[in-house]
Design a protein around this nucleic acid. Structure first.
Lengths: 162, 162
DNA sequence: GAACCAATGTTGGCTGAGCCAACTATATAG
DNA sequence: CTATATAGTTGGCTCAGCCAACATTGGTTC
């Protein structure tokens, strides 16, 4: 996807959606490379982060918090529990649910991923000053917030405020 | 009731790479939806745009300009030529090459996609002012430029490890 | 010309993200 | 008690973005 000979069509060069996608592809490649070195994937980080910040949770809750599909949560929890980074056990108070918990090893792993990812962000954004990075994050957050507000349908939906 | 389940973990909410990816996913969904209504895909637009702006070109040149892999160019040209939006004919001066040309119908189609995509950009960026949109494009462009400058161009790295 | 390397188009395949449908078991509301 | 909603799980689907391999042709060097 890297463009070798400079000449990118103007229509493409200036198209925000394409620009965003291009940067996202670079970012994902960097992140995936870094994570792969530890045998992890992006979903692993998302799950560990959710567990660390909000404590033990059902798989469905994890899906809601991370925006990951329920079916993909299953696979991710499988992988993490095989490596004993999380534990999955049935909820005694609701036998439909599993309760997923981070293990100490999981917490340590999360912290090492934190460092890895911080380095990646730095690499991705080297050409921007600190102020510009904040600007970028601000602008993107506004877009995300607007999406969440205007599309109550997707998997990122929250509880209706009733 | 599980109260704040819409809450996204802080680590994820503030992570630029994830933020970018999130917006890119929205953007791609909007774009794909709009294009699907006309039976087109993103690659179709990229190819038509490159042909319109730079004139007839070989498939390899199209790949270089759009960042699309040669093998994917093949499929895309197949689809476009079946709809008679482009023409593929052998280059008489270099029998390895095909020369791909836009047809008048292709040009018309491109222009209708232009309008479609302009609407999508507007929808994606509604929450930003014109100045902010330019800011965003500027910041993203800087990142892209830096990538291009610092990446040792995989497309040119055809040298076998010897 | 012969030998060699580079470029082109093409086929086939691979991985991961992001989905969705359907099923079973369980919980809860009416 | 019945109906509906939720939870976990399995299986599958599409697309983007790659990569390897191959045959054909062009260009270069001796």
């Amino acid at each position: 996807m890297e463009n070798a000979e400079g000449t990118v069509p103007n229509r493409l060069r200036a198209l925000p959606s394409r620009l965003i996608n291009h940067v996202a592809t670079s970012a994902n490649r960097l992140v995936d490379q870094a994570l792969a070195a530890t045998g992890s994937r992006r979903y692993h980080y998302a799950l560990l982060a959710a567990l660390e910040e909000f404590g033990p949770a059902s798989q469905a809750a994890l899906g809601r918090r991370t925006g990951i599909d329920r079916s993909d949560i299953v696979a991710t929890v499988n992988e993490l529990s095989e490596r004993e980074l999380v534990e999955r056990r049935p909820d005694p108070t609701d036998r439909r649910r599993n309760i997923v918990t981070v293990t100490p090893a999981g917490t340590r792993h999360l912290k090492s991923l934190d460092r890895l990812l911080a380095d990646v962000q730095d690499e991705l954004l080297t050409s921007l000053t600190t102020a510009e990075r904040e600007q970028l994050v601000g602008l993107l957050s506004r877009i995300v917030d607007h999406q969440l507000a205007s599309t109550p349908d997707r998997s990122l939906l929250q509880r209706p405020p009733s």
